[in-house]
């Protein structure tokens, strides 16, 4: 069966080497930030708490429920973890989960592990958390705001993970974007509903039994969160738009030539997918995208540092 969890664990061979390396660079940077943040926040409790909760997410992925027609819904867990623990701790928990899946069970590749962690543990966690905390601010910390925030956050988190996966496959030349994007996002629109239902169910249970665990996460847990979430969204948007907006006519012209040549060469009476060669998968597009992502990261890093210095200054006065 085509398990929905498997659909996001990219195996080796499906991403090109430059794309894999970009993934590692992004992920390593964020893991280091997360290690620092959680150490400040949790101190010596960091290792046992994160370790046991990573095992929890792994085990919770086993719990499923029948949806319809033999398919079943189950959990990816990134958004649940970030709502319960804050996004930085969730990054570490999900990093451990995805790394163990790759190292111990070969679910997802090793060379592409960087982007697998990024999609399922970082993007997912931060976006879900950003939506959830926005709902808490707007609607207050009521039952309704918990349901709305967690459901939308969980659904959107899965969607963005799928979108990012499709994008990485397309940039690697493995799957054309105009097919991969609707396919991945379409399938995960449904999977996301299962994720949302189960996340809300879990949170409602915890709210009833241990409401203290769902209290306002400590201020220290959330610092920089909005910034990172915004940075990730901008990075995604830039990645999506930049190659399409590239006004360079050479690439387009060449593809048009290729297309013309192909059509005369094939002389097929009908071809269903005549335009489905993706015009922008070339080294040039890759560099544009890489530059965009790196640029966004640098800006995010600088603003993060500035915010830190500012806070120090305001604390000392």
């Amino acid at each position: 069966m085509f398990s929905p969890i498997l659909a996001l664990h990219i195996p080796d061979g499906f991403l090109s080497v430059p794309v894999s390396l970009i993934g590692w660079a992004l992920t390593i940077g964020i893991i280091f930030l997360a290690l620092r943040q959680t150490r400040d926040q949790l101190g010596e409790r960091q290792i046992p708490l994160m370790g046991v909760l990573a095992a929890f997410i792994f085990a919770a992925q086993m719990i499923n429920f029948p949806v319809a027609g033999g398919t079943s819904g189950h959990l990816l867990g990134g958004v649940l973890a970030s709502i319960l623990l804050g996004p930085w701790a969730a990054v570490l928990v999900m990093t451990s989960v995805v790394a163990v899946q790759a190292l111990l069970f070969q679910d997802g590749g090793l060379l592409v592990l960087g982007f697998n962690i990024f999609n399922m543990g970082i993007l997912n966690a931060f976006i879900g958390y950003a939506v959830y905390s926005a709902a808490q601010r707007v609607l207050g910390s009521s039952r309704i705001s918990l349901i709305v925030g967690a459901a939308v956050g969980a659904w959107l988190g899965v969607q963005l993970a799928a979108l990012a996966t499709a994008l990485q496959l397309a940039i690697s030349g493995t799957s054309p974007l105009n097919i991969a994007l609707p396919a991945m996002v379409g399938v995960h629109a449904l999977i996301g509903v299962g994720e949302a239902l189960i996340t809300v169910g879990a949170l409602l249970f915890i709210r009833q039994t241990r409401p203290d665990l769902l209290g306002e996460p400590a201020r220290s847990a959330t610092r920089g969160t909005a910034l990172v979430a915004a940075g990730l969204v901008i990075a995604l948007a830039v990645t999506l738009i930049s190659p399409l907006a590239d006004p360079n006519p050479d690439g387009l012209e060449r593809v048009a030539e290729d297309q013309g040549f192909i059509e005369t060469a094939q002389s097929a009476p009908y071809e269903i997918l005549p335009d489905y060669t993706v015009p922008f998968i070339s080294d040039q597009a890759l560099t544009t995208i890489a530059a965009g992502v790196i640029g966004v990261l640098i800006v995010a890093g600088i603003s993060f540092a500035v915010a830190r210095v500012n806070r120090r200054a305001s604390e000392s006065t």
Binding site: L84, L197, G201, L204, F205
Partner: peptide, 11 residues
């Protein structure tokens, strides 16, 4: 029900 199980497991 499944969500309750996940919540239970978390606690």
């Amino acid at each position: 029900v499944a969500g309750g199980m996940v919540g239970n497991l978390f606690l």
